[in-house]
């Protein structure tokens, strides 16, 4: 009996075969994208999925130039930084208040937040567009960032609140007994505790904004203020036959994401797993 339980190892070969095939399915398209970004158009015609025979590195500066990446990448960075700052500061304040200061009606507020985050975007997209037009916020960086902050903050508040609730408030109370003001408690005690949670939120929000397409498509229609995604959409349609160029553009867009993904994998996986359930 014991022999059957512990002695006999299960045969894991089928697991590895199927998992290997699934890995190939996930990764090979990205590899082909990378290969194609280094081919000449001529080579791409006859060798459309294989390893490049000759590296044409000039695709990258060409795509950078023709796709206006210097401008759009700056725009995307502005959107990411603005949104992350807004979500972390405003969402963090709200999460702290809800987890620690126990205002009346905080449970009701959480229910409000929960239902709010399930309202479909298409219900308010058109009225929001009109409102933004009337407020002259359409095609402004500030206007787009405000929308991103609003849509990302429910998730941030949930995550940060549940993160804070896990820690007992003893440190804060001890600081208060020692005569610290509420502001000091917040900056000296709470912030260091919340730090990992804030970093996770920042990472998930940054990734979301970096790749966001549909809201930018609607609310930012001036070329020189577009983020990477929608500007790349135009670039891709303009150079629809020049795939080595557009592939190089795509690689430049995902390179920062890939580098951060490799570096902070664990936090990424944790954050997104929680974020996916927002």
């Amino acid at each position: 009996m014991i022999h059957r339980l512990f002695g006999q190892r299960e045969n894991l070969a089928p697991n590895y075969i199927i998992l290997g095939l699934l890995c190939a399915f996930a990764v090979i398209p990205i590899l082909i994208l990378g290969f194609n970004s280094l081919k000449s158009n001529l080579e791409l015609g006859e060798n459309s999925v294989g390893f490049p025979r000759q590296f044409q590195w000039s695709n990258y500066p060409d795509a950078w130039e023709q796709g206006g990446f210097a401008v759009t990448m700056t725009n995307s960075v502005i959107f990411v930084v603005g949104t992350v700052t807004g979500v972390v500061v405003l969402g963090g304040m709200a999460a702290y208040a809800l987890a620690r200061l126990n205002p009346r009606g905080s449970n009701l507020y959480m229910i409000y937040m929960l239902s709010l985050s399930t309202i479909p975007f298409w219900l308010y997209a058109v009225p929001l567009f009109i409102l933004w037009k009337n407020l002259s916020l359409l095609n402004t960086r500030f206007g787009l960032i405000v929308i991103y902050i609003a849509l990302n903050s429910p998730f941030a508040i949930f995550l940060l609140r549940s993160f804070l609730v896990k820690f007992p408030p003893d440190f804060e109370d001890a600081a208060r007994v020692d005569g610290a003001t509420e502001v000091q408690v917040l900056t000296k005690v709470v912030l260091p505790i919340m730090w990992p949670g804030l970093l996770t939120v920042a990472l998930v929000v940054a990734l979301g904004v970096w790749g966001e397409f549909q809201i930018a498509l609607i609310f930012m229609q001036e070329d020189e203020k577009m983020p990477l995604t929608t500007s790349y959409f135009n670039f891709m349609r303009r150079f629809s036959r020049d795939w080595s160029l557009t592939a190089a553009g795509a690689i430049m867009m995902i390179l920062p994401v890939l580098i951060i993904f490799m570096g902070l994998q664990r936090r990424f996986v944790e954050g997104l797993t929680q974020g996916g359930l927002k």
């Binding site: 790749g211 891709m236 867009m253 995902i254």
Partner: peptide, 12 residues
């Protein structure tokens, strides 16, 4: 590897 495609922007 399973995770990788999910972090790419939809446009890519």
């Amino acid at each position: 590897m399973f995770y990788l495609p999910y972090v790419l922007p939809s446009i890519v």
